[in-house]
Design a binder for these strands. Sequence first.
DNA 1: AACACAAGGATGATTCGTCAACTATTCCGG
DNA 2: CCGGAATAGTTGACGAATCATCCTTGTGTT
Lengths: 166, 166
Amino acid sequence: MVDVDWLNEPEERAWRGLQLMQMRLERELARQLAAESELSYSDYLVLVALTERPDGRLRLFELGELLSWEKSRLSHHVSRMEKRGLVDKEPCDEDRRGAFVVVTHHGRSEIELAAPGHLAAVRRLFLDHLDAGQLDQIGGIAETVLASLNPDSRDSDSRESAIGPP
Amino acid sequence: MVDVDWLNEPEERAWRGLQLMQMRLERELARQLAAESELSYSDYLVLVALTERPDGRLRLFELGELLSWEKSRLSHHVSRMEKRGLVDKEPCDEDRRGAFVVVTHHGRSEIELAAPGHLAAVRRLFLDHLDAGQLDQIGGIAETVLASLNPDSRDSDSRESAIGPP
DNA sequence: AACACAAGGATGATTCGTCAACTATTCCGG
DNA sequence: CCGGAATAGTTGACGAATCATCCTTGTGTT
């Protein structure tokens, strides 16, 4: 009825393909992690971020920014992980509102256990199908798109609320 | 400690970039849909699949395959959509176990209302940053990866359970 | 100093997705 | 025609994500 600016064929192929691919990959990886470790994919991402730090610790809000997670999700998730002994929460002295998340021994051993299988799966399901040029293409595209999403001081879309930006 | 076959730089850039990009895009699109319509992103996908059919109807399992959703998720979601008057469920005569999902008037009008804004967002956030070559690259990569994921009669990874395939 | 306001997090209700188990029908081999 | 398997879909329980709200501490203004 209404005539809309639909996607043309290559656009649709790229967009839908990407979406479907991503969903299937994540599901497959989640499945693999669940099967071969005690970690969910989310757990894995948190632990990766932490273990990449030399001291294995991050402020909650830093972790949230790294993962692009909402603070509420992060708070809930970290609490669950804490209950399972994968991380600890420690108060922060410099800013007494804040807290650190610290990976525990158990957390480290779990991710060291999980990583090889996970990485193998990432290769098998995804990376192995790409050549170096494609890898680069993807990397570049992702960077571009992410950069455009990022609020590098942008007013996002405060159209009619452009009343009082001090 | 354990030395694992970590991703090298271009691999990591591509893989993490893609993941992050996808998450951010979906969040942004979900946000946009929520703001400008009554539909969630999932609702939108269901309605697109249905309205692409000339008769606006699909068997549940067909819909499930199209979206790559688990049947349980689909069942729950369609029930919720039915309660909101976006779709109907109709029994199937040829196979009396089965059922059709049919888009309603209301469903149609909601998606016709939502589509322009959504497509505009897809363009603004994603497609506009790509040239034709990149579009093609992405499409091809997605196809390849999806093909390798698909169980075209494959035994997936039944390694040691290769005992009794009748 | 006193105030409002922003930032870092936590919490509880609700919604959504997944898992396992279940019903009903159809398919197929004897 | 019968009995077991596979298929279509539902259901309930649980884990996970989101939303709005709230509490505490920092920051900045006057």
